[in-house]
Design a protein around this nucleic acid. Structure first.
Lengths: 259, 259
DNA sequence: CAGTGGTCTAGACCACCAC
DNA sequence: TGGTGGTCTAGACCACTGC
């Protein structure tokens, strides 16, 4: 490896990425061990490790500690913000619709369904415009595709609206998902907003989503409004960045504005 | 520093982040040197360096090689997909609108404005539905806020539509931005789509946006359609993830669907 | 138990910046 | 010219995996 303006580990990362793209290292298969790669490239193991750190951050490989380092195999999943809610009629929730389209086996685990107090002044309280001391119903879940975690989704509903609605207190909310239940309560959502940011995952998210500290996640605050702009749900999605493509579309409403 | 389930460098990163949040290290000010921090925490400089690598990936600090490491100071900029185009009437382009709202000084540099061939089968050709051999007008630019790069924006227009339109071949396209020029040509955009992904920046993007290899960027494919669903522009935005919040909103069009 | 990746160190050299 | 961060090494110990 000759000296160039680029560091050795960056060059090695490029080379490894090329091998992955060229399927020298096929999806799902393990890379050679760091020791072997250190031999091959004539560098120390630390340098190989640093190269692989780059591949991990970009989501190209996934390390199984004590075992090996494997090439990622999940494709990017399209998430069409508008259509996913229309399509949810086909399933028990919008989240599973996308995975199924790609013929991935989809599962959902529920971590918590409960009435909870909400942090005063926090994002949830603001989004739902909760008065001080007003509770929320929370539904915390993790979704998987082919056994790999694809997102954390925590939904909050104003308790004053859902009360103890039986369906919403159960994991399976029934046909059409939670929005159909809200509609039955007289609060069918008619308008939505989504705020999208990228950040690094915290410890809990790293565990739940099997991510590294440097792998970026999408954080989406999805807010549903019923008639009269009453917020009825905020869902906070945390999704591994390398797994998704977010899709939005809209019509121009100000086309009439001339210069 | 006692031994715990967490690595030393991760703990040190947490501690440094806490100091940043607590303004022990204020925005814009430099951290102590790595040697000094190594002394303080009683670890080697490599360990400190690894901790700081985490802070860099999350965008909390920015290293100036040979000089020092400083706390980031730019706030997150909201980018409202819908409204930015309506608001662009106030400026010469939508991109500068957001920065100005936050009282940031906004500048734009143009890297290229030219008629170019388009990679057959590539994303641009597909998005604009270009026939083989059909050229495009490209406008490549980099936007800055307070002197820091905030995004790369490369716009492509079908050459068959814009021809050599004088305004579009100049850096300053005039009041209302490029969409007003397209409207004058009879191709005013009326529908838009955006596909959003996150990934790590390539070498050129790292240089242009002053980013590290591990700092995620948004890649947004923004496509504008005129009447009859004719694609008239695709703009590829590459934006440092830590600088932006993307905002979308829409009304439900399928509320009538009952179970 | 052997192999793997995770972490850490001490020491070294380099390019770059500011003075 | 001295201080800074960037990189690299050799060697070490550890926890974990899978046989």
């Amino acid at each position: 490896m000759v000296e160039t303006p680029k560091s050795q580990y960056a060059q090695i990362a490029d080379e490894l990425r090329a091998r992955i793209d060229g399927e020298t290292y096929a999806p799902g298969s393990p890379l050679p061990s760091e020791a072997r790669l250190a031999d091959e490239f004539g560098v120390s193991r630390v340098t190989i490790n640093k190269a692989i750190t780059l591949l991990r951050a970009s989501g190209d490989v996934k390390v199984r500690r004590g075992a090996d380092t494997r090439v990622r195999s999940l494709p990017r999943i399209p998430r069409d913000a508008k259509r996913r809610y229309a399509a949810r009629q086909e399933g028990t929730g919008a989240g599973e619709v996308e995975a199924r389209k790609l013929s991935l086996e989809s599962t959902t685990t529920y971590r918590e369904i409960a009435r909870v107090p909400v942090l005063a002044g926090g994002g949830v309280a603001k989004a739902l415009r909760l008065r001080k001391g007003e509770d929320a119903l929370v539904r915390r879940r993790v979704l998987y595709a082919n056994g790999e975690p694809t997102q954390i989704a925590d939904s909050y509903y104003p308790w004053s609206i859902v009360r103890g609605d039986k369906a919403l207190m159960r994991p399976e909310v029934g046909k059409g998902g939670s929005y159909s239940r809200l509609a039955e309560l007289g609060y069918g959502p008619v308008r939505f907003t989504e705020d999208v940011t990228v950040r690094v995952p915290d410890d809990a998210e790293q565990r739940a989503l099997e991510l590294e500290a440097t792998q970026p996640v999408f954080e989406i605050w999805h807010v549903a409004y019923a008639a009269d702009d009453v917020p009825v749900e905020v869902c906070i999605h945390v999704m591994p960045g390398h797994l998704w493509t977010l899709k939005y579309d809209w019509d121009d409403v100000s086309a009439q504005d001339g210069p």
